[in-house]
């Protein structure tokens, strides 16, 4: 019984703290990606892998870079990014539905990567 009370009180505290964190608006600023900012992020996440092409998602929340036969993918998660390296062919052949490119995730931590697609996909440098 006492555990149930402590647990209930803790649950209320958790909800209050989450509310406080949302109210405070102190998340990291994440303006839509442009090419320079995407390249900086790509260099941080994939050092030593120079890009031959870069594509930004339509809403600026993600990017795909091409480095040889690899697609280097960034997807915004909250105020941060998840990065994955996929075979380029997997990115090129990925399905588009409802304006979203759905890339197969490479692992259990990210089953899918979804990016808003615009007219620019695939990048002109990519082979058809």
């Amino acid at each position: 019984m006492s555990f149930a009370l402590v647990f209930a009180a803790s649950l209320i505290a958790v909800l209050a703290l989450v509310g406080l964190a949302a109210w405070a608006r102190i998340a990291a600023p994440t303006p839509p990606l442009d090419e320079p900012s995407a390249r900086v992020l790509m260099a941080e996440e994939f050092p030593g892998e120079p890009l031959s092409a870069l594509w930004l998602s339509a809403d600026g929340t993600g990017a795909i870079g091409r480095a040889g036969d690899k697609a280097l993918v960034l997807v915004r998660v909250g105020d941060a990014y998840a990065a994955r390296r996929l075979p380029w062919s997997a990115a090129r052949d990925a399905a588009i539905a409802d304006g979203k490119l759905t890339l197969p995730g490479a692992d259990a931590a990210t089953p899918r990567l979804r990016l808003a697609v615009g007219a620019a996909w695939p990048p002109p440098e990519a082979p058809a």
Partner: peptide
Amino acid sequence: ARYEARDTAISLFMGL
């Protein structure tokens, strides 16, 4: 200090 609400929620629910 940076707090993102959903990240905070995950942290606190994992603690609970």
